[in-house]
């Protein structure tokens, strides 16, 4: 299972098992949600916004290891950032999970998600929580939905 250890790096497995900031945030003044109808993944993101700074962020939800780990890593990476900074980080992440290219400047622990680019069906899993968080921070309360499928 060579490729799989690239997708499921130990950082991912660890964050999946012990997601950080996995709670309701009582002080939140923004809430965003996202779901992936294809697999039933569901996420709620709580944001405490001070001016244009994300003072605190947490999440709750259920989903695959990639979605849970990515959301967990997101909370660590977005805390204390301005919305503009958060968008820049997300842009880097998006590029990484779609192309595999890790930005020169520090993607730090997020680099663990680089393997996702080899699994196109899983990119949505990695970005769901981020969409929900950024939408919430920007004041868009519409739930984020990924593509549909049937079986």
């Amino acid at each position: 299972m060579h490729d799989l250890t690239e997708l499921y790096q130990s950082v991912i497995l660890d964050h999946n098992r012990r997601p950080r900031n996995y709670s309701v945030l009582p002080a939140a003044n923004r809430v965003g949600s996202g779901n992936n109808p294809m697999c039933g993944d569901q996420i709620t993101v709580y944001v405490k916004l001070e001016g244009d700074r994300i003072a605190d962020v947490s999440f709750q939800g259920s989903g695959c290891a990639i979605s849970q780990a990515s959301a967990s890593l997101m909370t660590l990476n977005l805390k204390g950032r301005t919305i503009a900074e958060a968008e820049a980080i997300y842009a880097g992440l998006h590029k990484m999970v779609t192309t595999g290219k890790v930005a020169e400047d520090d993607m730090s622990d997020l680099a663990a998600l680089a393997g996702v680019h080899q699994f196109p069906a899983r990119i949505k899993c990695a970005t769901l929580g981020w969409h929900a968080a950024l939408n919430a921070a920007k004041g868009d309360a519409t739930p984020v939905t990924t593509e549909r499928t049937s079986d």
Binding site: D3, L4, C39, G40, C64, A65, I66, T149
Partner: peptide
Amino acid sequence: KGVHAHDVVTMADQEGVALRGGHHCNQ
């Protein structure tokens, strides 16, 4: 237990085994 269906299907696919994971159109 402890492994989401999506992860099961991705890993099985790496082994050449085609499965389906999801709510199977019955939420």
